[in-house]
Design a protein around this nucleic acid. Sequence first.
DNA 1: TTGTAAGCGTTATCAC
DNA 2: GTGATAACGCTTACAA
Lengths: 337, 337
Amino acid sequence: MADTVTIEDIARRSGVSTATVSRALRGLPNVSPATRDRVQRVAAELNYSLDSRASRLASGRSMTVGVAVPMAGQWFFNQLSTAIEALMFLNNYDVVRYVLVGPHEQTLLFHQLATSKRVDGLIICTVALTDEDVQLLQDLQLPVVTIEKETPHFPSVTCDNTAAAEVAVRHLIELGHQDIGLITGLFQDPMGFTIPQERTDGYLKALAEYNIPFQERLRIEGNFSAAGGAEAMAKLLALDSPPTAVFTLSDEMAIGAMKTIRDAGLRIPQDISIIGFDDFYLSEYLGLTTIRQSVSQYGETAGAILLELMENPDSPHVKSIELPTQLIIRDTTGPRP
Amino acid sequence: MADTVTIEDIARRSGVSTATVSRALRGLPNVSPATRDRVQRVAAELNYSLDSRASRLASGRSMTVGVAVPMAGQWFFNQLSTAIEALMFLNNYDVVRYVLVGPHEQTLLFHQLATSKRVDGLIICTVALTDEDVQLLQDLQLPVVTIEKETPHFPSVTCDNTAAAEVAVRHLIELGHQDIGLITGLFQDPMGFTIPQERTDGYLKALAEYNIPFQERLRIEGNFSAAGGAEAMAKLLALDSPPTAVFTLSDEMAIGAMKTIRDAGLRIPQDISIIGFDDFYLSEYLGLTTIRQSVSQYGETAGAILLELMENPDSPHVKSIELPTQLIIRDTTGPRP
DNA sequence: TTGTAAGCGTTATCAC
DNA sequence: GTGATAACGCTTACAA
């Protein structure tokens, strides 16, 4: 219980004022090297660090950023958070992840985070923002950056999902495929994800380019999980004339689909080709052809923008950054049988 | 800029004191329903929430818990964090993950977290604690729970790794295998993981049970990644008489190993059997036989203990909890060729 | 059930 | 380069 060393104790034992201790310990200028040294020594002796709770109140900054994601368990979002955490750690910010479970809860959460000053800034991933959300965030002046979701209101980091999907499907077409299945997200999605539509647009564009008519029957609902991919694939295989190739809107769905294909006694790619999206970290080991995007780079980029926004709140230019994608051809795509 | 509503404003407009506002808004007892209602209404009108920075200083609790992990990007640790986050969110705690990069940085981090009061409690995963760490954490009175690492000093949540590994290897032996490869962690590991040794012990026990001599040549170093598994498997296949089955200390290494096996033109399990450990979320889709442990349950259990420790710091009983594991037989293990 | 008022341990402004 | 001191906005005995 002897455990309440404060900045005053350090000040006293160093023979300086608390102001000087604060400056010395935070590495601020206007402290003589000798003084700084002495203060640091005393602080170390007494096992002292500035109390973050008091600092945060006095400075008016919570030194915390929020990362809001629809699903924390998924590889993609963890990759994102990890990159953001690493960057923020270097800048002395704590990062806490918040899981978005629905539009209503989401609005409440944003409101709560902003009004209680729990975070100095927020990175919002993938989900749609309602007008109310935007209003709120702007009124409350919380710095915001979005990932995987462009908005006119905040800086964002995205890729060109439509173009990337087009590349994927073109790859399939050039291998001779005409009947190309599409395993997408939920058709009716409560969180308002737009990625599925963007990628579907790319699929349609590629077909159109080659004058291949779109077949609604080949478009099946998945939910971005392996289980969803497996089920969707089963529906595709049950069709009168199943597709000879499938474009899956995520690698994890592709992995599920591959299981279904193999369980049906079919070979990949001899009987059926499959291409995913993401370049999931194990896709290399599964030989999955896919569209690569650098997920960590999304996180790092968004983090850097947020940092700037927090330091300099009147930075007026809403930058929206679009990162590149790349077709990675491996073993799951081959010529039409 | 009109944006500095404080508890006093709410108090004034509600015609009560700040103390009452505080009580009303926090859901504490001893507030009449009418008063609480009025206060809540006023707070809502003014978009007010209690300032978390001020609350934390005044209450002396940071309402934040740390989760320290050696690798944030890995599925296992993300699963853990996600479970902890969900539980803590319900209890109004923020959780922030800290990545442990080495024994020295680790000690520094713990010291910093504790002295700066950045966290009210800490969950430490997998890594070894040095005597210095233990001393520090105890002196500074920071509530600590460990996962995947038993210590006499703090409550822990683990499984019986040795017994589980024994089950895995016994499964292989009962299928007729005698030459059983072992792909383990780094032999010299800077973070002091003990899991590899514990599981290796299980491997040895199973062999001994059946009087199968241990062959050092079959024990290869991996690093708990798919890449490490792939490389280790290559070494195993290069042996004069390669094993007919392999026990891999994680599913992710197994996935890497499976690629190597298939690339070599060998069939699983006809030519070689493989069994992993974890029951990674995609293992089902890869047909991987494995030992299942409930990772989320580790997180939830550790979180619950930490919560209790934080509420009740003098809770003297260091509970150590051991969770069950289970052999999940799928398609990668079969009779010896 | 409600109010009073003394902290909580910093930061930051301004003067020296 | 350094010091005095007024915030920062809440919580929590204790009293009423």
